[in-house]
Nucleic acid binder design. Sequence first.
DNA 1: TTTAGCACTCGAAGATAAAAAGTGCTAAAA
DNA 2: TTTTAGCACTTTTTATCTTCGAGTGCTAAA
Lengths: 351, 351
Amino acid sequence: MLDNRKKKILQAIVEEYIETAEPVSSKNIVEKHGIDYSSATIRNDMAELEKIGLLDKPHTSAGRVPSAKGYRYYVDELLNCNNISRQEIKYIQTQLESKINQIEDLTKIATTTLSEITHYTSVGIGPRAGGQEIQDIKFVLLGTRMLMAVILTENGLIKETIIKFDEDINQEQVDTLTYIFNNKLKGRPLTDIEGPFEEYMHQEMNSMLKVVKPVLEQIKKVLEEDVQVYTEGANKSFDLPEFKSLEVAKNFVNILNTEKTKQIIQILNSEDNNQEINVYIGDENSDEALKEFSVITFTHKDKGKDLGTIAIIGPTRMDYSKVISAMKYISQKLNEDETKRLDKGGNENNE
Amino acid sequence: MLDNRKKKILQAIVEEYIETAEPVSSKNIVEKHGIDYSSATIRNDMAELEKIGLLDKPHTSAGRVPSAKGYRYYVDELLNCNNISRQEIKYIQTQLESKINQIEDLTKIATTTLSEITHYTSVGIGPRAGGQEIQDIKFVLLGTRMLMAVILTENGLIKETIIKFDEDINQEQVDTLTYIFNNKLKGRPLTDIEGPFEEYMHQEMNSMLKVVKPVLEQIKKVLEEDVQVYTEGANKSFDLPEFKSLEVAKNFVNILNTEKTKQIIQILNSEDNNQEINVYIGDENSDEALKEFSVITFTHKDKGKDLGTIAIIGPTRMDYSKVISAMKYISQKLNEDETKRLDKGGNENNE
DNA sequence: TTTAGCACTCGAAGATAAAAAGTGCTAAAA
DNA sequence: TTTTAGCACTTTTTATCTTCGAGTGCTAAA
């Protein structure tokens, strides 16, 4: 357990370093952070904080820098998570209330807003469709050899895809298709489309196989692949001093490579953590590429159902207070809206 | 007009510089590019090429570097635009022939493929829907207060959007909607949805206004906004020596900012140029941010209709020969496939 | 018209030195 | 026991100078 003064010193160092990106000296703490002891006293405490592993020292004659563990302590114990101004609150409200037609749009807007408020790079991924219950499936014939499948889930997620055929198909076949799919799948999780349902179709619906097979394949493809990824404000990070190092900048661009981002966020989220907001600092990240960055994520959920994940990615020297405050507020706001949305039966005004 | 030797020297300098990123010396040209004159002779020619503005000199004791004008001459007069290997051709074929369901997918795959072949960053934007003729419009009721509109155009472009209502709507209203829209809009360009049609609806269809108004608004929104942008291989550029300069790297990331890319490519394409492939070298770009980069674009067209634009963005020291060769091949291949696709009536196998 | 030869220029790389910033420790003060 | 003044020590930063090498430009001859 740290005594009070050490806590204050750690906090001062973390906050000063977040602000200036320069190692913090004992003198600086006395002068700028109103801790009324001599610099020698501070130095002694700093040496101890370093011994416990909360601070690092770039070299002998530099000041101190928080270690990953130091940031962790700060985030867990010292951080003010209500660091958000009236203006910012107003801005978030305006943004989130703009006209939205789908859950994906909501995630996207939240992603953008978060990046704008925090000035860090944000990444959003749409909800994983997997576990959700199917509410309705529609098939629409487009021309003679093309079909559109529209799948609605309980949470208002809408997936649509185009299916093309080698031969003409007619309205009757489409109606049968609609009937079978709805009859067998309504109320079941999306994942049921693969597995038992597929087997059933193959065995019982032999006559329809020519139509059913491409449909199933295409739907499966869409459910697997189509996780939308939004990246916002990648350029903002490049103004940060840590991006002076070409190596860091390169790694960062590599991480934002869509393929990789998706993977990473999913790894992060799968790691049990059912906290509202998850913070991964530096080498706490299991992914090698992320070890010199920090990631803060939250998943917008409703009754345990995933509605999309949003993350902030930045240097370990990140303004945790600001990011976490903004996330908390956005998260809360999304939940309010969600409640409203469901109360109204999914019928927001389009105007 | 350049004499033969000067042409050869210019070509040697451009190609050597593209390969090594180092200023090229007179000695290098004699030794590595089989031009059988003394270095002094080459030096004299180089001085003249510099005087005409085709070469630049970083400083007195460095070799020469092509100027934007020099690259332009090279691209227009000296370039081998058939610089593509058997292997690469094969790879492109495989990629483009993979299962594709929509024009957007095709643009996306072509964008990815181009980046993979050239090792530069590529950007693709989906077709602008604007001018295309409407082939069919479908409305699908999803629940009681939600409608999906699906618009098919003559070229197989499919746009869909969700519309939400304040009040319940019924199947009858949807049928009326379908009838009116198709009756009035089939065979007309998409742009007709705004303007005369909108006025007509407001005047004649007063009874339906509550339903029609949100529909029109949402459709207009989708047609305006929803130009897909794909960026591929942004990380590849970061290995190029010009990206050692932080300033350059930063500008580049800024350009790839989705918003901006879209804008830029559309500016580039609006500049009359109805060439198959357009090359904009360094300060030939009107956009300030692009002046230290080169952009090569082509638009995949069918009967004058825009089916998507793909661009390569890289340093002015770009391997024009390789990029242009790859683009030419992809462009040609896309046109072949397009012909096939239309012949078959838009019915590719889904398998 | 071409080329050999050489003086000249400029940047890159290395060496040295002085300056600046901060710590760690010792010994004294509170 | 805790705090602090003071100072030696360490390490980075910055500036200046030198040297080295690469490459040109020009002159005069082939």
